[in-house]
């Protein structure tokens, strides 16, 4: 089981994503932005950061990178792809997921442990969760406000394409409290919060009674392992 982790110029969380993949039990294959060869990986993670300095729009230039063009093609053929934070912005800019992400409503960069509800478990990246399970993983972004036109929102809600919703606090003004989406096929998932930062006790969000012990993010990576083994 090989999972590719993409590095663009300005990517920050590729090493944490690679660590999460290893902890889940898969082999990591580093993928470089300028190399269109996906090296026969079974799945891809687009990590967070500030690819190309967020120039033009967050994710817009990364969406045109050779590796992304190859990923878009493979995703259309069913390759599991997870976009985290800037990776979610790349998925939106490459039209693998609909809508757009704009600056947080209150204009501040937000960094907090965020509660989410898993609203769809029929995806490559969420099949190990229970439906409506509440999880806590870190959120850290400046441009995480999800928007889409009324028609798109209606379709997302009607077809069950909202994968994650913010609970208790909507940190960035996202429409319908949307934190993450899936595509129709369920192989592509994107979200603003960071599952890769909550995979190992001692380094995750606080839990009641125990500091930094939250590992709710690990199930994302365990899900894709399960999916690929069963495929």
């Amino acid at each position: 089981m090989k999972i590719g982790v993409v590095t663009f110029p300005g990517t920050l969380d590729d090493r944490d994503a690679a660590r999460a993949v290893r902890i889940a039990g898969a082999e990591v294959v580093p993928l470089w932005h300028a190399d269109a060869n996906l090296h026969k990986v079974d799945a891809v993670v687009l990590p967070g950061g500030f690819s190309y300095g967020d120039y033009l729009r967050c994710g817009a230039i990364a969406a045109q990178a050779p590796v992304t063009q190859a990923i878009v093609k493979a995703a259309e053929g069913g390759l599991p792809v997870l976009g985290i934070c800037n990776g979610f912005q790349v998925l939106v800019e490459s039209h693998l997921l609909p809508g757009g992400l704009i600056r947080n409503e209150n204009q501040h960069f937000i960094c907090r442990d965020q509660k989410l509800r898993v609203e769809n478990v029929d995806t490559a990246w969420t099949n190990q969760f229970e439906l409506n399970q509440e999880i806590i993983i870190p959120l850290k972004n400046g441009e995480g406000g999800y928007i889409a036109d009324a028609e798109t929102l209606k379709r997302l809600e009607g077809e069950g394409l909202v994968a994650f919703r913010y609970v208790d606090v909507n940190p960035n003004g996202s429409m319908n409290d949307i934190a993450g989406l899936r595509n129709e096929r369920g192989n592509v998932v994107g979200l603003m919060p960071h599952p890769e930062h909550a995979v190992e006790a001692g380094f995750g969000p606080d839990k009641a009674g125990t500091m930094r012990s939250g590992i709710d993010g690990l199930k994302f990576f365990e899900s894709v392992l399960k999916q690929v083994v069963n495929a």
Binding site: L56, R57, A60, Q64, E93, P98, G99, G100, I102, I147, A148, D149
Partner: peptide, 8 residues
């Protein structure tokens, strides 16, 4: 197609 994003 590239310089602007019609959603925003």
């Amino acid at each position: 197609s590239f310089l602007s994003n019609g959603v925003i």
